[in-house]
Design a protein around this nucleic acid. Structure first.
Lengths: 193, 193
DNA sequence: GACTATACTTACCTGCAAGTAAGTAAAGGA
DNA sequence: TCCTTTACTTACTTGCAGGTAAGTATAGTC
């Protein structure tokens, strides 16, 4: 035993990337252990079965969301910078290997997920949409945004668009694909500047 | 040998459902052969390896697209009915088992796909967006729709929204989730009726 | 009636994925 | 110094996934 160097966290980091790149059935314990220079069973030590691991990944995802939205809100709390925070965060995430988002990665396996993971994923979606709903309400009040309909549905629509766009971006040759769709989302919010 | 009953087509039908429900790595040759009452190797006879099968499924998907859009256009060629055709077609498809769409199912495995399948999938996306672009252009000309920006980007945005929405619908308890997002898409197109 | 192609079945092989049981090395108390 | 806990490794097991090779039944052709 040389450097203890939190193995658990390294496993989560590696698995998190793999999950968003290849999906639940697209990576194995070996794919995690090999690059870390540890044995297969070491991963099982920390996460006895794969669903334990996936649960940790979804929890990690929730943690990332909280950190990010807190950061966006620190931009002064105005609507537009918060929306731009979401866009630039998404763009940044997609620069390396074009990972998709967690709900997108889990969607295909949704029926086989244990209830607790479903609930965590549902909460992630609920939390994201609640945050964005408030941003949209704020933006509409302050006349920064103009759009029709229920802010909650509009928020879910935007999140669905981003989820789909990240997946389409994997096939798109256009390097600026995501940005073009972000532009359209802005236009649909009545943002012209 | 009793009823020849096109086995190949039955395999495609079964695999098509499985693909959109569980994704490429979520089903096996056994999952196809068992319900059809044939042997594993019979599937290999028609599709020597899994990518041969996937290729046939993506081709099937392109065929379905052509049939559907031709049907929507038969509604008289006006923009609004064609858009509604897309919505009702999507709604109908999602009634049983909430399958996601083919590009969504392939997205997670995109990097491992052989080039010919990538190209078929790209063509599917190109064909869909081309069709929707024309519908949007038509609708804008005829003052049925009002939206800002490039119709092609708007079309891609709507397709991304639907792709994401179908995935989110799997987690949503709300039975009318898809319809609510369709309503929002209409609102964003300036449709009020 | 022999020959050929089609559409399978039977009976395998290989490899890997998930998971487990038992052993071990180091660290930290009591 | 012994004991316990933590964090692993070694060395398996099980099962299934994808794939193949060889045999067989039927239909149609010459």
């Amino acid at each position: 035993m040389v450097a203890p160097a939190n193995t658990r966290e390294q496993i989560i980091d590696t698995a998190y990337q793999l999950m968003l790149q290849r999906g639940l059935n697209g990576f194995s314990y070996r794919d995690i252990s090999e690059p870390l220079g540890i044995k297969n069973a070491a991963v099982h030590y920390h996460f006895p079965n794969k669903m334990d691991l996936v649960k940790a990944l979804v929890e990690e995802n929730c943690r990332v969301l909280r950190t990010s939205t807190a950061e966006f809100m620190a931009y002064g709390g105005a609507a537009r910078p918060q929306l731009e925070g979401l866009f630039s965060y998404t763009r940044k995430q997609c620069q390396c290997g074009r990972p998709i988002c967690m709900p997108g990665a889990l969607a295909i396996d949704y029926d086989e997920l244990p209830d607790d993971i479903k609930q965590l994923n549902d909460r992630f979606i609920a939390d994201s949409s609640r945050w964005l709903t408030r941003v949209l309400e704020l933006g509409r009040e302050q006349k920064e945004f103009s759009f029709k309909g229920d802010p909650r549905i509009k928020a879910l629509t935007i999140l669905a668009t981003i989820q789909g766009a990240r997946q389409m971006a994997r096939a798109a040759e256009d390097e600026n694909f995501l940005d073009k769709l972000f532009d359209q989302i802005r236009l649909d919010l009545g943002i012209t500047s």
